[in-house]
Nucleic acid binder design. Structure first.
Lengths: 219, 219, 219, 219
DNA sequence: AATGAATGAGTTTTCATTCAT
DNA sequence: TATGAATGAAAACTCATTCAT
């Protein structure tokens, strides 16, 4: 789309010597990748700085500590999925179509954002100790549950969905069917002797998840 | 006063002074707990020895390295679930009953063995680098898939199950519906503002998972 | 609402935007407090700037280095006591009265200037490496010794003071009797289980020091 | 005194590879010197280990932290002066002689143990935050005050001492007259343009302190 | 004159692992 | 087999100082 990056700022290291926002962005991106790969304990501040192309001490200047940086990365990762969910516009679609789109989105997002899973896994082992601002997180997810609730009810009224399922559990099932496939892909691949990360296997899984969910919900 | 401590028993822990098997067992149990809580990188050899009530050097004496100990813990954890799965005796039950029992077992096992999830999560982030003996793991899971395949086919012949679902994906779905609920319980609880680890919530989830799966598979 | 912050005054501290003298004064005061509390090694340039409400770089702009700032603080602290000593006007008083006033002044000055002790202590551990302009310091103290010498002689001639005491040692004794009480107040309070910094204890010490000194000097 | 150091342990570094007590002693001695020279903040753990001829990590193995090591050094330094004070046997001497001996001891101890002053000074600046076991310290000093009290009373009854002086303040005066001379020796030397640390000056000070104290106390 | 981002050299502390007993 | 001291390498974090604006 025409002249990308018109600014004189180089994309890598030595960021024009003075660019606090760029520095913070670079650190956050590097941190997300490093934490996703190695977890909070395994990640190295040195390595994060190296990846960001900045001096290590800037981590402390801008974020105060490794743990704060981790928190910031978590927050950003949640904000990412929220932003895209809100753009789904499900309420205007027929219930079954809306549900299929939601399941598909949940699946596709994880394909494109493997760091989301990795960060959440570590955070869950730590009993969600670093989760940023609880109220904000709940506010961010409430619309999703409301939407799911409405869609299930609409489907029930129209006779296409069963009416005995708790929306929160339905959401967890939808998320889990996709999430588990990706989060445990390495061990599952070994166990079953199949390369479950191949494009072919992923596509098959996507179809399965949609079919499985819609069958489970149908009246 | 007179003869202080005349007994040959030492006053401190120090497991019977000579009990290699007991020591190994204690170390393995301590390691499983420590790795489950903190991951491979976060776990401390010192702490594992302390939990086991033995000297740190014994970790090296018996297991060679922290990583080997981790491997041993992983192996033991897989052996645990394998042993119980084999005792399920599903082949003699009606297909729907067999399936319900399998789903229930998958769920219940995770309730009773939270360390299983924690260890697997870390291993998956590390791309299953430490997974013990691949062939053995596959051998251990092959019967499960065969059994699932047979059960689905039996159900198909009897007209109670649909016939278009890949057994591996069905297994992954069954496992995922339970696993995700527990692995992500802390963050899900925060996000939805509900205590999903309460006995009540767990029981509701169990019913949901069984209903969801059976509905998804029915003809 | 309307025009936000139209005034040219910045919203944050930032002393009048241009006030070099005020800045220097603030820095010196902040430095004296910080060095007194933590010593040269323990003091933090960041903290000094924060206390002074100015940017850290101004420390370097105005003083060149942390050590120079320390030197300046020391110098100022010596100048403080010198200025007050000169105002004592002892030469016109009867010897015993003059001596009592000098002892009282030495005591009171320390009560009011605890930073004097703290700064000197650190400097003495460092073997007086940073002491400003030796000659000037000596010039500043010479009159004091002369005065003490004259007072002792006058007292000797009048038969109220003994005549065998070296003025420098007498000065050190007078200073020490007060100084030690304050410099070691925390440890002495612990050791003797008494709160030696209470107003009551301080007043008692003042009386003791005067009585002790005058008794030691009397003929 | 006959065969010194008969043990095969070398006096310096590489302590026979296994000698925990020797290691701790060496670390404590090195720490005392380093803390005395540079204070708690200025001391370097690296340097302490180097001086002790041991690996730096042994500081943490044996003492846990730099601060704990400092505490241990403080404790040892207090124990040192206590041990010698107890050997003074003042109660059997005539009051004036006992007092002279106590003053002389207070003076001589500081001559031989300059680290005592340096450690105390730093601790006092920090408001005695690290002082070890308060009760024990008080117990250790109580006999001294009792002794002083008795000596002053004996002197009072015998008509050689005045009877209006608080023993604690007398002790602080005795200590202060010697302590201040040494603690502030560098700055005093500069101020008065005299080398107050010369053997000659020290001897003169010793005589002064004894004369000053006895004169102050005499009936 | 004033600001705050940026840096390099260090400092305490941690930790898996090995050694001597 | 078991112990605890000892070690080297690295990790998080600190801090005085300088740079660009």
């Amino acid at each position: 789309m025409a002249a990308d990056n018109p600014s004189p700022l180089p994309l890598t290291r030595s960021r024009a010597t003075r660019d606090p926002e760029g520095t913070q962005r670079a650190l956050l991106a590097a941190a997300t990748a490093e934490f996703a790969e190695k977890g909070l304990a395994g990640a190295r501040v040195d390595e994060i700085a190296r990846r960001a192309g900045v001096n290590k001490q800037l981590v402390y200047h801008h974020f105060g500590s490794k743990e704060n940086l981790y928190r910031a990365a978590l927050e950003q990762v949640y904000a990412g999925i929220r932003a895209q969910e809100q753009a789904l516009q499900l309420s205007e679609l027929p219930p079954a179509v809306a549900m299929e789109r939601l399941v598909g989105f949940s699946f596709d997002y994880l394909v494109e954002h493997p760091e989301f899973i990795a960060l959440l896994n570590d955070e869950n082992r730590g009993r969600a100790r670093h989760l940023p601002d609880t109220a904000q997180l709940q506010d961010m997810h409430a619309p999703l549950i409301t939407l799911l609730h409405e869609t299930l009810e609409r489907g029930g009224r129209e006779g296409v969905f069963r009416t005995d399922m708790d929306p929160v559990n339905v959401y967890i099932s939808i998320a889990g069917l996709s999430y588990f496939y990706f989060s445990n892909n390495p061990t599952l691949s070994v166990i079953f002797g199949q390369e479950l990360s191949s494009a072919r296997a992923v596509a098959a899984r996507r179809r399965h998840v949609i079919a499985f969910t819609l069958a489970a919900l149908r009246a």
